[in-house]
């Protein structure tokens, strides 16, 4: 019984603490600024916006 109580109470405290730390970090690291710039993260100079990257079927030859 004490084992469970330890785990339960420990988790109840630990989870919000971790969550708040993550939130504080995110705000401090500027994660909430420039949301539109974030949408471009999958792209770079070698695979920029506007270029398809997986044409391998349907006889599309390059």
């Amino acid at each position: 019984m004490p084992v469970i109580a330890f785990i339960l109470l420990g988790s109840v405290v630990l989870l919000p603490v971790v969550a708040l730390w993550a939130l504080r970090w995110a705000a401090a690291a500027g994660q909430f600024r420039c949301p539109d710039k974030a949408a471009l993260l999958p792209f770079d100079e070698s695979e920029p916006v506007g270029v398809e990257t997986d044409c391998i079927l349907g006889g599309n030859r390059r």
Partner: peptide
């Protein structure tokens, strides 16, 4: 969220909606 933009070469429609 990664593969659709990556394959079609266009960013996700609304980043705010995704968050």
């Amino acid at each position: 969220y990664y593969f659709i933009p990556k394959v079609i070469g266009r960013p996700i429609h609304s980043y705010y909606l995704s968050v």
